[in-house]
Amino acid sequence: GAPPLPPYSAGGREVTMKKGDILTLLNSTNKDWWKVEVNDRQGFVPAAYVKKLDSGTGKELVLALYDYQEK
Score class of each variant (00 low, 15 high):
residue 57 T to I: 11
residue 64 A to M: 03
residue 61 L to M: 11
residue 64 A to I: 02
residue 19 K to R: 12
residue 53 L to F: 12
residue 42 Q to H: 09
residue 41 R to Q: 12
residue 59 K to C: 08
residue 11 G to E: 13
residue 34 W to Q: 01
residue 50 V to M: 05
residue 23 L to H: 02
residue 48 A to T: 10
residue 13 R to Y: 14
residue 63 L to T: 06
residue 15 V to I: 14
residue 7 P to K: 08
residue 27 N to K: 06
residue 40 D to F: 11
residue 21 D to E: 13
residue 31 K to D: 13
residue 11 G to I: 14
residue 62 V to T: 02
residue 68 Y to N: 01
residue 15 V to F: 12
residue 65 L to N: 03
residue 4 P to N: 08
residue 28 S to N: 07
residue 23 L to K: 01
residue 20 G to F: 04
residue 46 P to E: 00
residue 66 Y to T: 03
residue 2 A to E: 08
residue 64 A to V: 08
residue 31 K to E: 10
residue 39 N to T: 08
residue 68 Y to W: 07
residue 24 T to F: 11
residue 64 A to H: 00
residue 62 V to R: 00
residue 7 P to R: 08
residue 5 L to N: 06
residue 30 N to M: 08
residue 17 M to W: 03
residue 46 P to T: 01
residue 11 G to K: 08
residue 62 V to Q: 00
residue 40 D to H: 15
residue 57 T to A: 13
residue 32 D to A: 07
residue 36 V to A: 02
residue 26 L to E: 02
residue 15 V to A: 05
residue 38 V to Y: 12
residue 44 F to D: 02
residue 34 W to G: 00
residue 38 V to A: 14
residue 1 G to Y: 07
residue 39 N to Q: 11
residue 61 L to P: 02
residue 31 K to R: 12
residue 9 S to M: 14
residue 54 D to Y: 13
residue 48 A to G: 07
residue 58 G to D: 14
residue 40 D to E: 13
residue 29 T to N: 14
residue 9 S to Q: 12
residue 26 L to K: 04
residue 4 P to Y: 05
residue 47 A to K: 04
residue 14 E to V: 14
residue 53 L to C: 07
residue 50 V to K: 00
residue 42 Q to M: 10
residue 71 K to R: 15
residue 13 R to H: 14
residue 51 K to L: 14
residue 54 D to W: 14
residue 35 K to D: 04
residue 45 V to W: 01
residue 7 P to C: 12
residue 26 L to V: 11
residue 19 K to W: 03
residue 58 G to R: 08
residue 23 L to M: 15
residue 48 A to F: 04
residue 42 Q to T: 11
residue 4 P to R: 07
residue 18 K to D: 03
residue 9 S to F: 10
residue 37 E to Q: 13
residue 61 L to W: 11
residue 45 V to A: 03
residue 24 T to R: 12
residue 18 K to A: 07
residue 43 G to W: 06
residue 37 E to F: 06
residue 6 P to A: 02
residue 71 K to C: 12
residue 2 A to R: 08
residue 59 K to S: 11
residue 38 V to R: 15
residue 35 K to W: 15
residue 63 L to S: 04
residue 45 V to T: 02
residue 69 Q to A: 13
residue 28 S to W: 09
residue 11 G to Q: 13
residue 52 K to R: 13
residue 66 Y to I: 04
residue 41 R to I: 15
residue 64 A to D: 00
residue 55 S to N: 14
residue 59 K to W: 09
residue 29 T to Q: 13
residue 70 E to A: 15
residue 21 D to Q: 14
residue 57 T to W: 11
residue 55 S to L: 12
residue 30 N to Y: 05
residue 60 E to N: 15
residue 50 V to Y: 01
residue 17 M to V: 07
residue 66 Y to P: 00
residue 52 K to E: 06
residue 57 T to V: 13
residue 31 K to I: 09
residue 34 W to D: 00
residue 42 Q to S: 12
residue 68 Y to V: 02
residue 15 V to N: 04
residue 34 W to H: 02
